[in-house]
């Protein structure tokens, strides 16, 4: 009984703001084109999908997040393998270093990153944002993948070598299938941290390439169509919800501090 009440309270707390957003997203909040304020319908979604800027924003976000996730996994896999399988000079210092980068507040680095990326010609490009987001996603990916590789017995490495697999073919044919759930969980956490990030995404897109977060921010003005803002918010949550669904059985592996 107590448990049911507690679960109900939790669900209410989490869902209430979302219910409000969904309700608003189906309501006309700014009268236009002969639609009265308060009408219930799909016009806000039609408005979002009909706007080239907002469509482009969804595309931009998708491109840099996918790039970021791919880059993080590709770079984190060998590093995680090294940390899980070997001891070497400075391994703990490396773990400390990535921890420090993970917790460095983005505001601290925003200014020099902008200047540096302006010189490299990476402003207004999804590549720039994808690179910068590695700062906080790469450590998380390394932690998660390392803990998954640790659970794979060393015998797998050794049998593969005896079977005549080279290091590279072992990596792709044996290790990656064995830790596929770990790659999923790492991709999930990289995805959410990158998808919702605002500070870097805003300063690195001055005139073009604006992602969803910045496009939503730009929708606030003298007369804000809050219904449309909420429609955009609900749409922007869909990929995240899909990601949660895909990793639901493995999400509970989580990650822990390695230092």
């Amino acid at each position: 009984m107590m448990r049911a009440v507690a679960l109900m309270l939790l669900a209410t707390f989490i869902l209430l703001p979302l219910v409000q957003a969904v309700l608003l997203s189906f309501t006309a909040t700014l009268g236009r084109d002969g639609i009265a304020v308060g009408t219930f319908g799909l016009m806000n979604y039609a408005g979002v999908l009909g706007s080239p800027t907002l469509r482009a924003a969804i595309g931009n976000s998708a491109v840099y997040v996918l790039l970021n996730v791919a880059l993080c996994i590709a770079v984190a896999l060998p590093a995680a393998f090294a940390l899980a399988r070997y001891r070497f000079v400075g391994d703990r210092h490396f773990l400390l270093l990535i921890l420090v980068f993970r917790v460095t507040p983005p505001v601290v680095l925003s200014l020099p990153i902008f200047i540096l990326f302006a010189r490299l010609g990476l402003v207004n490009s999804p590549v720039g944002i994808a690179l910068v987001h590695c700062l906080f996603n790469l450590p998380v990916a390394i932690w998660i993948l390392e803990s998954f590789i640790r659970t794979v017995p060393r015998e797998l490495d050794e049998t593969a070598y005896l079977d005549g697999h080279s290091g590279v073919s072992f990596f792709f044919r044996h290790l990656i299938p064995a830790i596929a759930p770990g790659i999923g969980v790492a991709a999930f956490f990289c995805f959410i941290f990158s998808w919702v990030e605002v500070v870097f995404a805003r300063i690195l897109t001055v005139t073009a390439g604006k992602p969803i977060t910045v496009a939503i921010g730009a929708m606030f003005g003298f007369q804000t169509d809050i219904g449309m803002v909420m429609a955009m918010t609900c749409l922007s949550m869909l990929p995240g919800v899909a990601m949660i669904w895909f990793v639901r059985n493995h999400i509970a592996k989580g990650f822990a501090l390695r230092a």
């Binding site: 679960l7 939790l10 669900a11 989490i14 869902l15 703001p17 979302l18 409000q20 957003a21 608003l24 959410i192 998808w195 919702v196 990030e197 605002v198 969803i212 977060t213 939503i216 921010g217 809050i226 803002v229 909420m230 918010t233 922007s236 949550m237 990929p239 995240g240 919800v241 990601m243 949660i244 669904w245 639901r248 059985n249 999400i251 509970a252």
Partner: peptide, 24 residues
């Protein structure tokens, strides 16, 4: 699993929209 998915929902809302949801 359903509880975990529920709790993870707010994590996928764009950061700058979270205050807007609550102000709404």
């Amino acid at each position: 699993i359903w509880g975990l998915m529920l709790c993870a929902l707010p994590l996928v809302v764009p950061l700058n929209m979270i205050p807007m949801l609550w102000l709404g």
